[in-house]
Design a protein around this nucleic acid. Structure first.
Length: 565
RNA sequence: CGAGAUGUGGCUCAAUUUGGUAGAGCACUUGGUUUGGGACCAAGGGGUUGCAGGUUCAAAUCCUGUCAUCUCGACCA
C-alpha cells in the first residue's frame, strides 16, 4: 500500500477518553475510533489486524475439522426464553421490539441457535461428534465498558459448539479445542495462562479460561509458585492450615467503638488472622450471615452455591432486625434469627476473636465448640500467600484478560430445547454440548498491552497490518524513488505486505508513524543509496543495519520465512 | 445503579472563579525556506462552547433540567 493515496492517519496525543495503553495506542495509530462507550469502529489499518487474528483462529479451527457458519445477531427472544436465559442474562441482553411489537434480542451468545442448527443435522448417533463455529458479532449491555477493546458492548467472538455422545467422546472434542486454542495463542505470541473458571451463566460442568497476562486484566488469577495450579479467583481454593494451639477459655471483652476488624485488632493488639468477621447478607431476600477470617473477602458465588440461592446482596436494616445480630459486633456465638454459614477455615481456627452481638463487646479466645452455625462451606477468597491446594506451595496473584474460554455444558440446552438423536437401540438420547469462545478484539488489546514501548506498539509479524514499512527519505530524489519503487514491487510480487511511506513528509514524521503502528520490519531508502546501501531495522530492536541493495529483498524474505508462525 | 470529574474547531487544551465580540498548539490550505527521529516563516479556512430551557442590556461563564464521556464502586460471559 502506498500511504500517499490511502486512508491513513495517526494522532500525536493520547485520547482523553482512553485510559489503557492499548486503547490509546490503537486510537492514536488510527486503527480504531470510539463511537460510544464500549462501541468502536475498526478503521482500515485496525481491520487488517483484526482480520489477521480471525484468520489465524479460522486456520486452527478448520484444522480440527470444525465447520464455519454464520448466525444472525437479531433473534426472536423466545429462543432465549426456552433455556431460561432471558433471566440469566437480565439487563446484560439488548432487548428490542420489531414493528409488529415482537420481542427481539441482540444475541449475547449463541448456544440456543447452534443447538437448533445441530438438530437439523443430528438424527443418529452415527452423526456424532461434530463441531460448528462462527466468528460474528455479540452484543452485551455491559454496565461499565472499559479499557479500549477489553470490555465493549458489541464485539466479534469466535464461538464454537461441539456435540458429543458421551463423556469420553466429549473429552476428546474438548481436548481438540484446548490444543487448538494453545496453537492460536502461541502463534500470536501471547503471554497467557490457562485457568480453572466458573461456569457462570453458561451452566455446565467444567470451564477453563485462557487469560492474557496484563496489569489491566479484570480477572484475578491465582497461581502457585511451585506447581501448575492456576485458577480464576472466583473458583480458587487454598489449603486450610490447622492451628496447633491449646484452646483457651472464652472471654467477653469491652471494645468501645471498634466497629471494624481493623479497629478491633488495633484495640486488642490482635493479628487479623485470629479474628472472624461477619458479612450480613440477604440470599433471595432472607437474612444470611456468613463468617470468615478477618482478612478475607466473601466470595459471593461460592456463598450462593453453598446455600443454594440465586441472588445475594447486603442485608438491609429491616432484614438484620429479624436476628439479634448487632452490626459491627456480630459473632457466631448465641446468634439466632438468621441462617448462619461459616467458612471451612473458621472450623480450624483456634482462640479467635469475634463479635459478641452487643454494642462495644467482642469475644476473644473463641473456638469451634463455642459457636453455633447451620452450615460450613468454602465461601471465602484466596489471599496471596495462602497454601496451594495441590502441592503446598505459595499462591500468588496475576491479572488477566480473558481471551478464550472452554465450557463443558452437559445436556441441559438440548434437554430444554428437546434436541435428541437415536442411539443404536433406537432410544432417544440428548447429546452433550460444549461451547468455546475466543475474543479477537481482546486478543488485539492484549497483544498491544503486552508489546509496546514509548514509541508505540510492537506487533508480531503475523498480526501487524503490514509486514514491512518502506520509508523513502527524500521524495524528490529520483534515485531513491527508483530504488524504493523497485523494492516495493519486488516484495509485493513475492506476496509480502508492504506499507510504502511515499508521503511528502520529513523523515522524523515517517519514522514516528511507522513505530507507532508497530510495523515489524522497516526498510529505509535514504542517502546511503549512493553506496548501494539501504537500512534494515526491526521494530523490536534499537539498532538498524545497512544492507546491500541487492540483498535486501532476500533478507526480508528470509526473515519473514523464519518468523512467520 | 451509587459517588466523583469532564463536555469549547478534526485532536489536545485555555478563557468559567469575577458574565462584556470565543483563543492557543497540533492537524488542514497556499507560498517560501528546509529535509535521517513529530521543522521554520508568512498568509488563510474551520467553532451558534453537548443539548434544552431560564436569569440578564449581555451567558462558554450564573441557575434548572437533560444527554454524553471518563474514573472509583456495585455488577459481570
Amino acid at each position: 500500500m502506498r500511504i500517499s493515496n490511502s486512508y491513513f492517519y495517526t494522532l500525536r496525543e493520547d485520547a482523553k477518553d482512553e485510559e489503557s495503553k492499548s486503547g490509546n495506542l490503537l486510537v492514536r495509530s488510527g486503527m480504531i475510533k470510539k463511537v460510544g462507550a464500549g462501541i468502536y469502529m475498526y478503521l482500515p489499518l485496525g481491520y487488517r489486524v483484526l482480520d489477521k487474528i480471525k484468520n489465524i483462529i479460522k486456520e486452527e479451527m478448520d484444522k480440527t475439522g470444525a465447520q464455519e457458519l454464520l448466525m444472525p445477531s437479531l433473534i426472536p427472544s423466545e429462543y432465549y426464553e426456552k433455556c431460561g436465559r432471558v433471566e440469566a442474562f437480565g439487563d446484560n441482553m439488548f432487548n428490542l421490539r420489531d414493528r409488529k411489537n415482537a420481542h427481539m434480542v441482540l444475541g449475547p451468545t449463541h448456544e440456543e441457535l447452534f443447538a437448533i442448527a445441530a438438530s437439523m443435522y443430528l438424527k443418529s448417533y452415527k452423526n456424532l461428534p461434530f463441531n460448528i463455529y462462527q466468528q460474528a458479532d455479540k452484543f452485551r449491555d455491559e454496565m461499565r465498558p472499559r479499557y479500549g477493546l477489553v470490555r465493549v458492548k458489541e464485539f466479534i467472538m469466535k464461538d464454537a459448539y461441539t456435540f458429543d455422545r458421551d463423556e469420553k467422546m466429549q473429552d476428546s472434542s474438548y481436548k481438540k479445542m484446548y490444543d487448538a486454542y494453545c496453537n492460536i495463542f502461541n502463534r500470536m505470541g501471547i503471554d497467557y495462562k490457562i485457568v480453572r473458571a466458573s461456569v457462570g451463566a453458561m451452566g455446565g460442568t467444567l470451564s477453563e479460561e485462557y487469560q492474557a497476562l496484563t496489569d489491566i486484566g479484570e480477572d484475578i488469577l491465582v497461581l502457585c509458585d511451585k506447581c501448575d495450579y492456576a485458577s480464576n479467583m472466583e473458583v480458587a481454593n487454598f489449603k486450610i492450615e490447622e492451628e496447633e494451639e491449646e484452646e483457651k477459655t472464652l472471654e467477653e471483652v469491652n471494645t468501645p467503638n471498634a466497629h471494624t476488624i481493623e479497629d478491633v485488632c488495633n484495640y486488642l493488639k490482635l493479628d487479623i488472622k485470629h479474628t472472624v468477621k461477619a458479612l450480613l447478607m440477604h440470599v433471595d431476600g432472607k437474612l444470611t450471615i456468613f463468617f470468615i477470617r478477618g482478612d478475607r473477602e466473601l466470595n459471593e458465588e461460592k456463598a450462593l452455591k453453598a446455600v443454594g440461592g440465586k441472588e445475594i446482596g447486603f442485608a438491609n436494616d429491616e432484614q438484620i432486625a429479624e436476628s439479634n445480630a448487632y452490626p459491627g459486633f456480630t459473632g457466631p456465638i448465641n446468634l439466632s434469627g438468621c441462617k448462619i454459614v461459616v467458612d471451612n477455615e473458621v472450623l480450624k481456627m483456634k482462640n479467635f476473636c469475634c463479635g459478641a452481638n452487643k454494642e462495644d463487646y467482642h469475644y476473644i479466645n473463641a473456638n469451634v465448640k463455642d459457636i453455633n452455625y447451620d452450615l460450613a462451606a468454602d465461601i471465602s477468597n484466596v489471599v496471596e500467600g495462602d497454601v496451594c491446594p495441590k502441592c503446598g506451595g505459595k499462591l500468588y496473584f496475576k491479572h488477566g484478560i480473558e481471551i478464550g474460554n472452554l465450557f463443558k455444558l452437559g445436556d441441559h440446552y438440548c434437554r430444554d430445547l428437546g434436541i435428541t438423536y437415536l442411539d443404536e437401540n433406537n432410544k432417544e438420547q440428548y447429546p452433550l454440548m460444549g461451547s468455546y469462545g475466543i475474543g479477537p478484539g481482546r486478543i488485539l488489546a492484549s497483544i498491544v498491552e503486552q508489546n509496546n514501548d514509548e514509541h508505540g506498539m510492537i506487533l508480531p509479524i503475523n498480526i501487524a497490518p503490514y509486514q514491512v514499512a518502506l520509508v523513502q527519505i527524500d521524495m524528490n530524489n529520483k534515485e531513491q524513488t527508483e530504488v524504493a519503487e523497485s523494492i516495493y514491487e519486488e516484495l509485493t510480487n513475492a506476496g509480502i505486505e508492504v506499507i510504502y511511506d511515499d508521503r511528502e513528509e520529513r523523515p522524523g514524521v515517517k519514522f514516528k508513524d511507522m513505530d507507532l503502528v508497530g510495523i515489524p520490519i522497516r526498510v529505509t531508502v535514504g542517502k546511503k543509496i549512493s553506496d548501494n546501501l539501504v537500512e534494515f531495522k526491526l521494530r523490536s530492536e534499537a539498532e538498524a543495519e545497512d544492507i546491500q541493495l541487492s540483498d535486501i529483498t532476500n533478507k526480508i524474505k528470509e526473515y519473514i520465512k523464519d518468523n512467520l508462525k
